[in-house]
Design a protein around this nucleic acid. Structure first.
Lengths: 187, 187
DNA sequence: TGCTAAATATGATACCCATCATGTAAATGT
DNA sequence: ACATTTACATGATGGGTATCATATTTAGCA
């Protein structure tokens, strides 16, 4: 049955929302088109009215979730604390798209890869802008180094099944980044 | 046809070798049992003589590749340089199992997760031991922080399709880790 | 030297998935 | 109000995958 224009737009948004959660949680390959549609409250048939292929869904979902994620621009310390929290580790579906999807994007389409690249470029720039107390060279280095450590720590913490070690990875990485930023700005 | 005991042992080793390369390159889901067997020079039929299931292959491959990978214990600077090199970034199939597989392990069996956990625990310990000039608390923090940054940087660099930015992520992370370790040991 | 067990090959089987074909009903424009 | 368009539902289709069944060949042993 046909639905109103706004209904269709909302359906499309809901598809992208649930797809972004499912992809972050389980990876691109492990999520089927039918599963996405069902999670959005629809059936698989309508899918190709919205997207030309699953690859197209992946590319558009990436653009959608990266556009929505403009985190890291405000209070950097608070952002780092939240990023390296058990809560974020345990919430891949709702968490950082880089931590959830970066490793999975190597074999996706050029469009998807390019979208991810621009998302990463922006994210590094945002973190750099949140470090105004550093001179430009230190700022760039601290932004990239901290971001790499944050993403790596969350991926490692999610891979570990021992809660104590997993917590320790998050906590020690937080302390390491903190020391790195403070010492550069003090030097 | 039946083969000799040694031939069978060699076949098994070759299956684990090619599986570890394929899994690191494409992820667990994207590699089929038949593909692994073909890459090992066999057909799919013999697979269940060696392994009870694909999950079993994944678990045994992880144990195999983590046991083989005892890197990071020697000259730490040289190890970090090699880890954060374009060569390692471009060689996922032959590279670090953590960078290639950690993000993919979240939905694998408990056995596989536990194997990965022990591999990560050893790796962190090895890096810590390679930092004897630091006192114990700094050493642990530097080991975990550096390792997180290394893994994160390689994953991010592999996700980026702009060579200049990808190289920069590796290079700046190297400089960031270097500064972090030096400053702690100088302080 | 011949018997038997075992390792691998060939060939099902049952299931899941992306995509397509067609039906249906409701929104939209006149 | 009505015709038409269209968004979604239901129901194929073709291909891939994990796993199983059976055949074949030969190593290992008596």
């Amino acid at each position: 049955m046909k639905v109103s224009r706004e209904q269709m737009a909302e359906n499309r948004r809901r598809i992208l929302d649930v797809a972004s959660r499912l992809f972050r949680d389980k990876g691109f390959d492990a999520v089927s088109v039918a599963e996405v549609m069902k999670a959005a409250g629809l059936t698989h048939g309508g899918f190709y009215g919205h997207f030309s292929s699953k690859d197209d869904l992946i590319a558009q979902t990436l653009a959608h979730v990266l556009a929505a994620d403009s985190s890291g621009g405000g209070d950097l310390r608070a952002y780092i604390d939240a990023y390296l929290s058990p809560r974020h580790r345990d919430n891949a579906a709702g968490g950082c798209p880089t931590a959830g999807l970066a490793a999975d994007i190597r074999h996706q389409t050029p469009t998807a890869r390019s979208t991810m690249t621009e998302g990463l470029r922006s994210q590094i720039d945002r973190i750099g802008k949140a470090l105004p107390e550093l001179d430009p060279a230190d700022r760039r280095r601290a932004a990239i180094g901290s971001w790499a450590a944050m993403v790596g720590a969350v991926i490692i913490a999610r891979a570990i099944d021992d809660p104590a070690l997993s917590d320790e990875v998050l906590e020690q990485t937080r302390a390491w980044i903190d020391a790195g930023i403070s010492q550069v700005s003090a030097g």
